[in-house]
Structures are given as C-alpha cells and as structure tokens.
Nucleic acid binder design. Structure first.
Length: 243
DNA sequence: GACAATGTTACAGT
DNA sequence: CACTGTAACATTGT
C-alpha cells in the first residue's frame, strides 16, 4: 500500500517516539525515507531498512495478529509490530545504505521543475502514468497518487510524454508536490490494509478525486469516470477533463 | 471461480 | 539499447 505519503507519515510518527531507544543494544539515531523505503539509522552507522510493499504495516505497541511477521523489541519494553498479509514486504540490516539509495530517481517532493523536464525528455515515448510510477525515474509515487496527480493536472494517463505541452508538464510537476503534501497532512490513504504507526487509518481516502471512482461522476464536470488497465494496474480518469 | 488489490522485478517481445 | 507488457511473488476479499 504505502506510497510516499504513507511511509513518510510512519517515519514522522516513529521519529517522535523511538529515537534514542535501543534495538539489540544499538541506539537509534534517526529515521529517513528514500522512495517508499523506511530507513532506521543506528548510532554505529548501520541501518535497518524496511519496505512495506502492498500490505505491510508498522505499528508501535500494536497487538500481534495472524499477519504479524516480525516484532522489533526495544530496550524499554516497547515493540514495533510488522504485519504483512501478503508477505511481500521485507526488512534487512545493512552496514550502509548508499547502494540502496542509489537505485532511485530524485525524490518526488524535492525535484525541481528543470530536473523533471530534463528527465521527461529522456523518455519521450513512454506513457506518462507508468513513468510517474517508475521509481528509477522519480521516487515515491505509486498507483493511487499517480491517478490523483494526473487528474489534478488534467492529463490523460496514457498520454505519450513527447505530446505534453510545457504548461501540462508544469501542472504535473506542481500537482506532484501539492497532492503528496496534502496526503501527508492527512496521514495517507487507507484502501484496506494501510495503518499509520499508531494503528490508525489514513484520512486522505476521503479526499480522493479519481482513484477507485470508476462509474462515479467526476467532481469537476460530472462525466462518468473510467478505468483502463495498463502495465498490470488500473488507471482511473475522467474522459472529459483529462485529455 | 474470476478478478482485483497501495509494489517491485525478471523476462520476453517489439 | 529503449521501451512495453506480462507474469510472478503470496494472500485476502468481493
């Protein structure tokens, strides 16, 4: 589930609560996020790297359930529970994180317009939605937010990059930041599995305009929202607003 | 049974 | 090499 806003929500919540605690005698110095990966840094320079994939949860002092795959026990008796119904998520201890961090494109929230435009010019034949979701291209955007960003920018998800006008590239760039920031404010989106580190659902679900709204009316023009399959995923769009 | 599901990656094909 | 689409991973829910 978790895309950038969900992982960032967990990172911020855990930062307030577990920095300074010890895990296996190693003191937690800080928490970072790269793309959709959570990185817990220890004082000795090593790190614990966690990817929640589709259904992973990290809940502080939660109740273990049938989906609990790992319990991280801190020195003060508190616990971080890793639940993962589909078992696709993983965690790994590493000496250094450089190799992991290198694999990704620029962070979606930190990317300047010029950088975005230059990147797009390298992939003129790609369709815009799968490109936004390609972590080697831009880090942090997944299926939910790529739909929401393209709806906000009024760009059709199947548009080829080379057909995008400068104004449209600007709108996509602006809305990447606008939508992701707003989603972080609301602690992310819960479709089914996602929970924040306190075990709560994300409230951005109530602000979705297009994702999983097939058959409903577009909030801008009333046209019935459509869904198409591409790259094995669903893309939702308004056939009237998004050209 | 069919289909879909927040992610990533390997592989086959164009 | 660039790019696209599909399957696979493992499981639940409708």
């Amino acid at each position: 589930m978790p895309e950038l806003p969900e992982v960032e929500t967990i990172r911020r919540q855990l930062s307030k609560k577990i920095i300074g605690k010890k895990l296996n005698d190693k003191k937690i110095a800080g928490l970072r996020r790269r793309a959709k990966i959570l990185i817990i840094d220890f004082a000795d320079g090593s790190s614990l790297v966690i990817h929640l994939k589709l259904t992973g949860q990290l809940i502080l002092n939660g109740e273990p359930s049938r989906y609990t795959r790992k319990v991280f026990n801190f020195n003060d008796g508190s616990q971080l529970i890793f639940n993962d119904a589909r078992k696709l998520g993983w965690w790994r201890k590493v000496k250094e994180t450089r190799k992991i961090e290198e694999k990704f494109g620029p962070e979606a929230l930190e990317m300047r317009f010029e950088t975005f435009k230059e990147l797009l010019q390298k992939r003129p034949n790609s369709k815009i939605k799968p490109l936004l979701m390609d972590q080697k291209f831009i880090a942090g955007i997944g299926n939910i937010y790529s739909d929401e960003i393209l709806f906000a920018a009024k760009v059709h998800p199947l548009r080829q990059v080379k057909t995008l006008k400068d104004k449209e590239i600007q709108l996509i760039h602006q809305n990447i930041k606008k939508i992701l920031r707003k989603a972080i404010q609301y602690r992310g989106t819960t479709m089914q599995d996602y929970r924040d580190a306190c075990g709560r659902e994300g409230d951005y679900t109530n602000h979705l305009q297009i994702y999983q709204k097939e058959g409903k009316k577009c909030s801008r023009c009333g046209t019935i929202i459509k869904r198409v399959k591409l790259a094995g995923r669903s893309a939702h769009f308004c056939p009237n607003c998004q050209k």
